[in-house]
Simulated scan of single mutants.
Amino acid sequence: MIRLLIADDQALVRGAIAALLGLEPDIEVVAEVGRGDEVLAAALESRADVALLDVDMPGLDGIAAAAEVRGAAPDCRVLMVTTFGRPGYLRRALQAGAGGFVVKDTPARQLADAVRRIHRGLRVVDPALAAETLASGESPLTGRETDVLRAAAHGGTVANIAQATFLSEGTVRNYLSSAMGKTGARTRAEAVRAAEDNGWLL
């Protein structure tokens, strides 16, 4: 029997996945959580074999939670599930130790099969997302450019961004300008949107 932990901040989605996978004869849902910062404790307490993690969760994102689980509970394998199949997410999830990455519209039978394959130590990646990830390459943004765009995503002035990132306003303008050039954007908002669409800002 595969002991499964499900983490998703949307209770309806979490419940639906648990109900569907719980029907499988060889899968037992042993824990459900709605926050990323609850994943590790639940994995340890439930002795889960596989953790099915959403990417976008409060407290801690699913990719960071995956890294925690792989570090502290190495026997628990991780399968990422997300609504947004962004190339940057896939690359970072695999770097964090996830064994697979699928999108939420995956049919229940395929999702159950993915859980089984991950449990056996195999890798499972949505083929369309894998192809897109290979085509898109690594993020061209530096760490600081990423920080500045992440702060810019919340709106506000250059002064607000400078305060949030502990940089001078001039430095923030330089990073914004550089990020706009790398993303081919004409405005700060376009640069944020391009980076988000590629999964570079999580």
Results as ranks from 00 to 15, higher is better:
L23A: 15
E190K: 03
A162T: 05
E32F: 09
E196H: 09
L167N: 12
R91A: 11
A131Y: 03
R117H: 00
L111G: 10
P140A: 04
N198V: 06
L12Y: 08
A194E: 13
E24S: 01
S136H: 13
G155H: 04
E28S: 14
A185I: 10
G170D: 12
I118D: 01
L90E: 00
L111V: 07
A43D: 12
S178A: 14
G71S: 15
G155E: 03
G71A: 15
R109M: 14
E169H: 05
D26I: 01
G88N: 04
T106A: 13
R77F: 01
A152S: 14
T82C: 02
A7P: 05
R109S: 15
R193N: 03
Q163M: 14
G15C: 11
R173K: 14
V33E: 01
I27G: 06
G97R: 00
R150M: 08
L20Y: 11
A159K: 11
A7Y: 01
S177A: 11
R77L: 02
S177I: 01
T165C: 13
A31R: 13
L201S: 00
R109Y: 13
G22D: 03
L23C: 04
A65G: 10
V55G: 06
A189K: 15
D61H: 12
A41G: 05
D49L: 02
A67F: 01
A159V: 13
A164R: 11
T165D: 08
D126Q: 05
N198H: 14
A48R: 13
V39Y: 05
G97E: 00
A179G: 06
S139N: 08
D9R: 08
A153F: 07
G143P: 10
N160L: 11
E38A: 14
E145V: 05
L176E: 07
A153P: 11
T133V: 02
R193V: 07
V158C: 04
T146C: 08
V78W: 02
L60P: 10
L90W: 01
E138P: 14
W200F: 00
G184M: 07
T187D: 03
A96S: 08
G156Q: 02
I27E: 04
A48L: 13
